[in-house]
Each structure stands twice: as structure tokens, then as C-alpha cells.
Design a protein around this nucleic acid. Structure first.
Lengths: 200, 200
DNA sequence: CAGCTGTGGTACCGATCGGTAACAAGGCAA
DNA sequence: TTGCCTTGTTACCGATCGGTACCACAGCTG
């Protein structure tokens, strides 16, 4: 049995990623599902198939690991945003598809809202490295949305973008506290109203 | 010096509230400002001018203390809601004043959003006593808002109430992650639009 | 082969966590 | 005054927290 394992090279199976990536993946998932403060580094290392020592060889502290997880999450969202831009060139259609996608995600009972917003709620300290990530990401996202609203021909792109932000963040947080059958179901309808009132 | 303190009875000063109330007040404040998991029972007892032992004589556990704090907060909000109903009998005006009050509170940089929503974000466990408090409160608040929208003559009171919920929760959470100068500033304007579109 | 680097494992650090036992002191009613 | 109930104080419990020291081993390069 052991000889088989030694001789037969499992070239079909994907080699496990390096420890740093495994740690980031495990930490991102655990932080999102259980909350940042609720998860200890020991549990993260175990979920990543490694140990605390290796974790601390790659991340200076738990706070830095949190910040790095949020950075990775932000990159992931930005990639999805770019992919959507490529798939749906028309700005007006893209806005509507984006709203609908958020609405679909909110309906999922396993959804826990925006990881960055959750982190901002859980971490009040202004100087925490994670806070800077949240602020930078939200600011960039706002800029992108303003640009898209402008492309869509909105009369006041900044105002439309902010109103859409209100609706979407509201829907996501309502789903957390009032369930997927609550006010968040109004997102698509209200979003369409707002888009039309701005001529987009 | 000590004789003075003994002889002169300070009858003008308000007698300090009983320990249970002091603990609840201190815990509510600390949980809101720093987050629930970030505050230990020792710090709560100290802030309340008492000790851990007395705390555990009044509350079975920290989780129960959290739930009781949220219950007190919910009662406080309900009282404010009733006071507003008495002060502003006209339903349409009351809706607008309520939206404006939320907008003003959100602008305050010291605001940390809705304590119940924050608790829901921080506590994912479905069976935590605090979760039940949040769900009961949010459900009651939604019912009240639907009733008020009906009184205000809205064509579809439930839909209007849910849309207003989306806006308000969105504004409060946006203020946390994007600051008081961000999208939350659109709350009053967008709220007025929604109210008018429903004929309220 | 030697030597280096990255990883895993274990044991440990001081601090803090939620929660409790035991006892002294005060207020208050009988 | 006696006796009870509540509070305050101190010390403690096991568990876990974030973080580290030390060593063994595997893989790669020279």
C-alpha cells in the first residue's frame, strides 16, 4: 500500500497550494462565516492544514492577516466587476444586471453580507489595518460606480451612484437582520425606479 | 477631612442606581462602542463601578447580558417611536420627520449604526439569545412602519415600508464603512422621492 | 555529498477569557 | 439586637487567546 503511494505519482490531482494561499483561503472563509474576533489563529492554521508557526512566518500578526484577507476579497470583487464590464458592454444593461446579481446573492440564505462592511462593523478602531482596506475599497467602488452611471447617461452620475449604494448596502444588511424574505426583496424594483428617475 | 465626609450628608446628589441598572448601562455603552466580542465582563463590571461577582448574580451569562442589553435598547427605541407619534400626529409629517432624524443621527461621526444590526453582524450563531431579540425587534419595527405608511395613505403600505427600510439601513451601514460624507447623505432626498411615488 | 530554505510539530509564554467559591461588610426589617 | 439579604473583595478555576522558541525533516541547489 505504501509502495503504491510512493511509486504511482498522482499527476492528475492538483498539487495543494503553498501554505500562504491555504491560510488566506481558510482565514477568509472562517472570518466571513463566524466573524473575525470569533476565530482564533489556531483554528485558521488547522483549517489550512498547517500550524500556527507557519502562519506567523507569512503574516506578521492576526490583524495583518485580516487585512490581507480583505485585500484579497477586494481584488476578487474588482475582478468580477471587470469581467462583467467585458461581458456586458452596454452600461445601462450592466447596471441592471449588477443590481440583479446582488439581489440574487442576498436571497441566498447562506449569504452573510459584504465581508468588508462586516469587518468595519466588527472593528471600530480607526487605526486597524483592516479599516484602511475597507475605506480604500469602498472609495474605489464608489468611483467605479460613478463612472458607470456616467457612461449610462445619468443626469447626475454621482447622485445616482450614491443612491444605488444606499439601496444595495441596505438590502445586504437587511438580509442579515431581517432574513432573505424581508425588505431586501424590494431591491430590484426600487433600483429600477431610481435608475429610470435618473435617465439611466 | 474625613470627619467632614462623615458628618455632611450629601442629600442633594442623586443616589446611584442599583447595580443591575449600572451594569446594563455600562455594558450597553461598551458593546456599542467597541463591539460585543471585544468587551470582557471584567471591563463591564469595572465600568459599572462593581465587580464580576455581582454581575453574575444578576445575569446568568455574558450572552444573557448581551440579550438583555439589546432588549433594553429595543425598549428605548420603541419609547422614542411612541413619543414621536404623540408629538407629531400627522402620519405623513411623522414619516418625514423620522427619516430626517435618522439622517441627522447618521451624520454624527460618533454614531456606530444600529446596535441590533451590529449585533446581528457580529453574532452569526442562529441560536444565540441575542439573535432572537434582533429578529423580534426588527419584525415589530417593520409592522409599526407598515401601519404608519398605511395611515399616511400609501397605496402599497408594505412595499413603501420595506423600501424605506432599505434606505435607512443602507444609510446607517454606509455611514459606518464610507463615512458620514458618503452615500448616506442621499437619504433624505431619496426618501422623499420614495414617499411621493407611493402617494404618502 | 553538504548546505540552505521552507515546512511541520510540539511545547511553551504571559495575558485574558467567561465563570465560580468563599468570606467580610453593609442595609434593613423584625 | 438579631438575622437576613445584597453587595463588595479577593482569589481562583480551566480554557483559550495571540505569539514564539526550538527542533526535525523534506526538497532543492551547489
Amino acid at each position: 500500500m505504501s509502495s503504491v503511494n510512493i511509486i504511482v505519482k498522482p499527476e492528475a490531482e492538483t498539487p495543494r497550494p503553498p501554505p500562504r494561499e491555504r491560510i488566506l483561503a481558510a482565514a477568509t472563509e472562517l472570518f466571513y462565516r463566524q466573524g473575525i474576533r470569533a476565530v482564533g489563529v489556531e483554528a485558521i492554521a488547522e483549517a489550512a492544514g498547517t500550524n500556527k508557526m507557519t502562519l506567523y512566518r507569512h503574516f506578521a500578526s492576526k490583524d495583518e492577516l485580516v487585512a490581507e484577507c480583505l485585500r484579497g476579497f477586494a481584488r476578487h470583487v474588482e475582478a468580477a466587476w471587470s469581467a462583467l464590464a467585458e461581458a456586458v458592454p452596454d452600461p445601462k444593461a450592466r447596471l441592471r444586471i449588477w443590481v440583479r446579481e446582488v439581489s440574487n446573492r442576498v436571497t441566498d440564505p447562506g449569504d452573510r453580507g459584504c465581508a468588508l462592511v462586516n469587518a468595519a462593523v466588527e472593528i471600530p478602531e480607526k487605526d486597524h489595518p483592516a479599516r484602511r482596506v475597507v475605506e480604500a475599497f469602498k472609495s474605489a467602488q464608489r468611483d467605479r460606480l460613478v463612472g458607470l452611471c456616467r457612461q449610462a447617461g445619468a443626469r447626475d452620475p454621482a447622485a445616482l451612484a450614491d443612491e444605488l449604494f444606499l439601496l444595495i448596502e441596505g438590502a445586504r444588511v437587511c438580509a442579515q437582520s431581517m432574513g432573505p424574505k424581508g425588505p431586501c426583496c424590494q431591491l430590484v424594483r426600487l433600483g429600477e425606479t431610481v435608475l429610470q428617475s435618473h435617465g439611466a
